[in-house]
Design a protein around this nucleic acid. Structure first.
Lengths: 237, 237
DNA sequence: CGCGTGGTTGAGTCATCTCAATTACTGTGG
DNA sequence: CCACAGTAATTGAGATGACTCAACCACGCG
């Protein structure tokens, strides 16, 4: 539940955990492609991803779409809209997924009365911000090959930290079109660049499974350093 | 002081303001180009820009630099490093500037004891995050002309909200190289694109002064909507 | 077995980049 | 008051990374 997601960002007491558990309003099962939160709307609450994968995005006036982050089990969605009262971006399911929602009202009360919960939420916002900043640098400065390699590295680090996959073998839910929208490249170019990355022996990617053959090489290729993810120490392979 | 900067993000009591005022450790005067915060370091505290302009940035391994945001009077720097304990980016002065610093220790105490201050800081983090997300979309999806127009719109909106400049006339502290590093373009291309924007009669830009002749046209050109800045209502011209 | 989604390929185009000078402006020392 | 240095802006020319358009292929599913 939410407590599990938040615990990565600060210690919670038993009381905190109980409160969070009781506050869960409902659990939704989502089909691929469904929106959970919409830009401009007042969010119904704060959500935790239980299963599957979501992505947050912005739609531009000409119809182009920029993916801002990928959300995997344990990640929060909509926490930034809690205090601001309005979503600045949308969130949608990438594959069949389930999310638990804690109503906004309940969240606000806990934030006001439980400093440890408030601090954990603040930290979560800060880490999400650090990741977004790395994306700005990735998209703004790195050429396609590095950019995609970097994204793959980030996803590996986060998947394994979440206990999904190990030893560089993970279930990969993203299409090349998703990678394109996340990196600001065309899907054709993503396709050709992935072929190069594979050709260089760094990864295998098919049937929805990613295998990283040369973790060190991939990190170098993507200029990747996991510091910005602020993961707990043990997972920085 | 800090209280003025924070008050944009939540109401503060007289007690809060007094506390913040007393907590100010020191005021630094900075020359252009000086670093105030360095990636990887534990930040000495939370800073407010008093005068001038700063920018936050990331340095990549090949020496390229991505500017992540511009900071003008009233903006905070380093707040994200407070709880995370380490800066994920650096901050430097763009021109002669002054900043007030509240030591980390004092900040942490106020966060623990003053919910209104903690909430204001959290909101500040959320708004900064929303702005960064818009930058991802800007850099990832928009062509050079739109991208630069969008940045100019953002800066105008923020400058005027901060009471610096009015009626589309503002003191413009950014060089074309800064714009290039912020938008992920080469400075040569920024130069040529600015010529187009000027040629289209949207702006005049020289001698460090920006004049916007056609605000509506510039916003359209940049696909700009100020919602993501979460400015107080009155300033959304 | 046909349809849909996702992946792959080819070919031509264009936005943007790099390299390399040149020009303007500002402040400084002689 | 002028020569000079340093920074910022501008211009030219050629190279290229990435894009678009348009097919085509492969697989999974009803």
């Amino acid at each position: 539940m939410l407590a599990d997601g938040l615990e990565r960002f600060g210690r919670l007491s038993h009381g905190d955990r109980d409160l969070l558990a009781q506050a869960v309003g409902r659990v939704d099962v989502l089909q691929a492609g469904m929106d959970v939160l919409t830009e401009g709307d007042r969010p119904p609450g704060c959500m935790v991803v239980l299963e599957g994968a979501l992505f947050s995005y912005k739609l531009l006036s000409d119809g182009r779409r920029q993916i801002l982050s990928f959300l995997i089990p344990g990640d929060l969605a909509g926490s930034s809209g809690l205090m601001l009262g309005r979503m600045d971006h949308s969130v949608a399911a990438l594959m069949p997924s389930s999310v638990a929602t804690v109503p906004r009202q309940a969240m606000m009360e806990m934030v006001a009365t439980r400093p440890s919960i408030a601090q954990a939420l603040w930290r979560e916002t800060q880490v999400a911000g650090a990741v977004t900043r790395e994306w700005v640098a990735n998209i703004g400065q790195r050429p396609a090959y590095q950019r995609i390699a970097h994204l793959i590295c980030e996803m590996r680090a986060r998947f394994e930290a979440a206990g999904l996959g190990a030893n560089g073998r993970i279930a990969w839910p993203f299409t090349q079109a998703h990678i394109a929208e996340a990196t600001g490249l065309s899907s054709v170019h993503v396709n050709r660049t992935l072929q190069q990355i594979r050709g260089d022996g760094l990864i295998t990617l098919n049937l929805g499974t990613l295998v990283i053959h040369d973790w060190k090489g991939l990190q170098q290729a993507g200029d990747f350093t996991p510091a910005y993810l602020f993961l707990p120490p043990s997972n920085n392979t």
